[in-house]
């Protein structure tokens, strides 16, 4: 059964999440003979992208809110938070800004609060960049970007005039970490080596590690 990825209006998506048509009484129709022989129903007669997703063709049933310009700023900041280095790819290579966009656009209460902080914060960042250097954040030199990031990376020490930026940075960093490490391309650098099949018994913990941790008496 084919299902085209669709984009719902926000109102429809909200209804979808709220789940369900209202309860209604259906007048019983005919009592059918019990010896009927019919074709099996279609495999997924009640499939909905929320309650019964098709894993092979995931549907993203809401519109994403961020504009292209906002995404550029988001990508640029995400790459400063999680750059390409020996421990893995850059945030922009694993879709972190797209994930944040999807996350803050989801019609779920918690995400809507997050949306205000992230969108407001991205604008704050660009306003601050203009105030200091007369350019958008993503157009600044790395040194200029770091100057601003250092002013907002610690909400407990930031100056009052940077406080909004600092709150935004906290949230943006958390979401960036979530988006980054849920991409399998980052797992080697993180140290997750599972999701592969192993034949035979589960190998357990190597002896040298058991010894190192002093667990010989319980292994």
């Amino acid at each position: 059964m084919s299902q085209k990825p669709t984009s719902l209006s926000r109102r429809d998506a909200l209804k979808w999440f709220a789940g369900s048509s209202a309860a209604s009484a259906i007048a019983p129709a005919i009592i059918a003979a019990p010896n009927e022989t019919e074709q099996a129903p279609p495999s997924f007669p009640t499939r909905s992208a929320i309650y019964d997703p098709n894993f092979a063709k995931p549907v993203y049933p809401w519109e994403k809110v961020l504009a292209t310009e906002e995404l550029k700023t988001a990508n640029s900041l995400a790459d400063i938070i999680l750059p390409k280095d020996a421990l893995g790819p850059a945030a922009s290579e694993v879709g972190v800004a797209d994930f944040i966009n999807e996350w803050i656009s989801a019609p779920i209460d918690k995400h809507e609060e997050e949306s205000e902080i992230i969108r407001g914060g991205l604008s704050w960042l660009n306003t601050e960049s203009f105030r200091r250097f007369e350019k958008r954040f993503e157009e600044l030199t790395p040194e200029q970007q770091i100057q601003i990031v250092d002013d907002i990376c610690d909400a407990t020490k930031s100056k009052p005039e940077h406080h909004i930026g600092a709150i935004f940075f906290q949230h943006f960093r958390s979401l960036s970490i979530s988006g980054y490490y849920t991409h399998s391309a980052t797992w080697k650098g993180l140290g997750y080596v599972g999701n592969i099949s192993i034949a035979g018994p589960y190998p357990g913990v190597p002896d040298e590690l058991i010894k190192k941790l002093g667990l010989e008496d319980v292994a």
Binding site: G19, V94, T182, S184, N195
Partner: peptide, 20 residues
Amino acid sequence: TPMFNTPEMAPLRGNKTPGK
């Protein structure tokens, strides 16, 4: 069954939603 599917193949990186 999505046996080896990874989070980046899923909406919201596989996070829970009201329907799931």
